[in-house]
């Protein structure tokens, strides 16, 4: 059974499809920022730190996704402010927050009575288990991030490109940089349900890398990344359903296959252009003789 036909037969799959759409669009848009600003390690640190928030929230009987949101935003602000003050090395700090967040989460989960299976869901995600309430949270986070980017597009781009120059134009660049980090943190939370915290980095990098083969301006790159992420989600869900595999891993492998396909296409295009150039040169030379 294909995912498309199953979509009409099972109501819960419509919720899954909606979650996939939200994850793909927000992941593609913010992934473009992550890739162009080379923030993949930072995104990975935030993603893993969310385990602390989810563990503590579950231990206290609260919504894990809410805990993840608080942990992600705290991690992002901590890294951003400390990096700005210049007292600590950014990569060291990210590594520390990555590990501390996971340690807090593991201890909290160990002290929570009941099923321990949730840990694997957090780590590896399961798009098929997503609830309507999850989708509402994801949609709210995406709407907030997209509205932020839309309203402050020019100052955000200027600050991402050259924060020193943006400061000389009077922009509040520290606030803008922190807001961008918070946006990354919120989208990490959106992606958690889809692929789990271990694989979030893949959805923030592979679709943009794929899109980069076809387009080269920031806005188009974001749109193309969202399309590539959506394609990876669909292929991944197909693969998961047909082979009875975990959804998160299937989506990530689909995203990777799309990237390899895009790279092959670029190689093919370059070789063809080169051989056309050679033909033209040979023709010109014979013509000149």
């Amino acid at each position: 059974m294909s995912f498309a036909t199953a979509l009409f037969e099972h109501d819960f799959l419509r919720v899954v499809a909606l979650a996939a759409l939200i994850a793909a669009v927000s992941g593609g848009v913010v992934g473009t920022i992550v890739v162009t600003r080379r923030l993949a390690f930072l995104a990975g640190g935030i993603a893993h730190a969310t385990l602390g928030g989810m563990g503590v929230a579950q231990w206290a009987g609260l919504d894990p996704l809410g805990g993840a949101t608080v942990a992600a935003v705290m991690a992002a602000l901590l890294i951003g402010i400390a990096a700005h003050s210049g007292h600590e090395r950014e990569d060291m700090l990210i590594g520390a927050i990555w590990a501390i967040g996971m340690a807090v989460g593991l201890i909290a989960i160990a002290h929570t009575p009941g099923y321990q299976t949730d840990l694997m869901t957090y780590l590896l995600g399961n798009l098929l288990m997503v609830t309507a309430q999850d989708v509402a949270v994801m949609a709210g986070l995406m709407a907030f991030v997209l509205a932020l980017l839309f309203l402050f597009w020019r100052p955000v781009v200027a600050t991402m490109f050259d924060d020193e120059f943006a400061t000389t134009r009077g922009l509040p660049t520290l606030a803008i940089q922190l807001a961008v980090l918070v946006a990354i943190a919120l989208v990490v939370v959106v992606l958690l349900r889809a692929v789990g915290l271990v694989l979030v980095m893949a959805l923030l990098t592979l679709p943009t890398a794929t899109a980069g083969v076809f387009t080269h301006t920031l806005g188009r790159l974001m749109a193309a990344s969202a399309v590539a992420a959506l394609l990876a989600m669909w292929l991944g869900l197909e693969m998961a359903l047909r082979t009875d595999s975990p959804t998160g891993a299937s989506i990530v492998l689909s995203a990777a296959m799309l990237y390899v396909a895009a790279l092959s296409y670029r190689r093919l295009r370059q070789t063809r252009n080169r051989s056309q150039d050679q033909h033209r040169n040979i023709r010109l030379q014979t013509h000149n003789q």
Binding site: L151, F152, R154, P155, V157, A158, F161, D162, F165, A166, R169, G170, L171
Partner: peptide, 11 residues
């Protein structure tokens, strides 16, 4: 275009 930004009209 970034040069056109200023502290009053930056949004």
């Amino acid at each position: 275009l970034q040069g056109r930004l200023d502290s009053r009209n930056w949004w």
